Deep mutational scan, measured.
Amino acid sequence: MPVRRGHVAPQNTFLDTIIRKFEGQSRKFIIANARVENCAVIYCNDGFCELCGYSRAEVMQRPCTCDFLHGPRTQRRAAAQIAQALLGAEERKVEIAFYRKDGSCFLCLVDVVPVKNEDGAVIMFILNFEVVMEKDMVGSPAHDTNHRGPPTSWLAPGRAKTFRLKLPALLALTARESSVRSGGAGGAGAPGAVVVDVDLTPAAPSSESLALDEVTAMDNHVAGLGPAEERRALVGPGSPPRSAPGQLPSPRAHSLNPDASGSSCSLARTRSRESCASVRRASSADDIEAMRAGVLPPPPRHASTGAMHPLRSGLLNSTSDSDLVRYRTISKIPQITLNFVDLKGDPFLASPTSDREIIAPKIKERTHNVTEKVTQVLSLGADVLPEYKLQAPRIHRWTILHYSPFKAVWDWLILLLVIYTAVFTPYSAAFLLKETEEGPPATECGYACQPLAVVDLIVDIMFIVDILINFRTTYVNANEEVVSHPGRIAVHYFKGWFLIDMVAAIPFDLLI
């Protein structure tokens, strides 16, 4: 008679799926529990143990900040960024110097990925580790590398530091407007667009060049630039800015003055950032001319202004700041037409079709709590990747769950009947059967004279019903998954307890 339990259901295979997918890609990662103190490590794979030199037993239950890997060259700011990422709910990448158990130093890129439950609360953290440099290539500990984003994938490793954006290309926007319009339909740009040429040739750093990471940081200074100062900065030398009595002219307006920039070969870094931020506020060169004239017309309804409409929906549905990093990277690809469009465009503009998908598509409701890094690593669709929660398995109709209350009560009843059979069957065979043979035949009273025979008949009927119930009862397979398919249940029961239950259900007393 089957006594099969499996009270692990309803099970959740999400954690096993993450481990299996990460292991298949030869990654070095740990999984931490966000619900406990210090976000203790609950799993670390073999790749991480080989990377740091510690065994799994030495890593388990330690804080996922990996303070046991810190050393003299470990930056405090990087460690603080990892700790801050564990307090938030967004994906974050941090470069930090770690030390192995043998004392060797290596520069590592740590990717902190939160995993949320159905309520939107962070319950786990996945920390992925990628070695960037070994100890002989690690720089000085005073050099802070965590304020910069990861290198873009479309640049060669040897040319990542030679990417320079020439400031004269930004200063000569109005001069290039006529050349853009003359391109017409034969050019790649839309009317009114501004073409910015980027020099990728390796050259020595000069005062006129600005690194790509500095251009990325310009967006942080746009908020500090007032509207009046932006307007004066875009007017140009024809209309000098008016300053109040006793007030000095704005240095932001002076930063885009061609006369002032041409007199000296070098520009201050602050002026460069502010000038680029001011130019980015204009949607095209037409807006710059309109600002000089004193009238700013409404933005025209053409394809170039609607190019950012799908980007707005993608940004609203993005799951991490990696989408913004990807957008900034692609927006700086050289030799393309940049349409400086305000994100607050007309909502009635139709979304044009684009061959290049900048932001990841909208994630469906079932995966809105899973970050983009987890979705990318697992390579699963929205119909396959579940949320991290207890999910009731989908069972067929008329199927009994093996952990249901009805099955528990039924098993206790069958257990009592088995005990009765084990006690009274030998007793009936030894004593009652002998008395029946010696006594007179009682054929007239039937079952009324033999109450134990009636009980034995009921017990046999219950055993037959138990066999039928076992054909529709779920079970737990070797992978700790609840199986509810009727065919698989029948095959599993035939290979197991079916023969024993059938022999126990045969009414031998009635056959004798």
Rank of each mutant, 00 (worst) to 15 (best):
N369V: 07
K116D: 06
D119C: 06
S243D: 13
D16M: 07
V215P: 06
R56E: 03
V8L: 07
N220Y: 10
V384Y: 06
N257G: 12
R326M: 07
R281N: 07
A169P: 13
G306Q: 07
D136M: 15
D219K: 15
T371S: 06
A253C: 14
S250V: 15
Q75E: 15
V115P: 01
G294Y: 12
A211Q: 06
P334C: 01
G192M: 03
L210A: 06
A277W: 11
P141D: 15
G224Y: 14
A203W: 03
D346W: 05
R176E: 06
R148W: 07
P361M: 12
I18R: 01
P168G: 14
R281G: 13
S304A: 12
A190Y: 11
E50S: 06
R252M: 07
E372R: 10
S206M: 13
T375L: 14
D213R: 15
D136Y: 05
D213N: 01
S320H: 06
P151G: 12
I96D: 01
A228W: 06
A253P: 14
G139W: 06
L87F: 15
A277G: 08
N45C: 04
V384F: 09
P245Q: 05
A223L: 15
P10S: 14
A142R: 07
D197V: 01
P63Y: 01
I333T: 14
A83Y: 06
K161M: 03
S140L: 10
H70C: 14
F163L: 06
T216Y: 08
E274S: 14
E208N: 09
G53E: 01
A40E: 05
G184Q: 15
S261V: 13
K166T: 06
M60W: 01
E177R: 09
F68S: 01
T367R: 12
A32F: 01
R356T: 10
K116Y: 10
R281Q: 04
R366M: 15
L324P: 12
P10F: 15
R328Y: 04
V112E: 01
S379N: 04
C64A: 15
L338C: 15
P386S: 03
R301G: 14
A193G: 05
E289I: 06
S255C: 05
P2G: 07
V180T: 14
G88H: 08
R164H: 08
V110T: 05
P258F: 08
F98G: 01
G71N: 01
N12D: 10
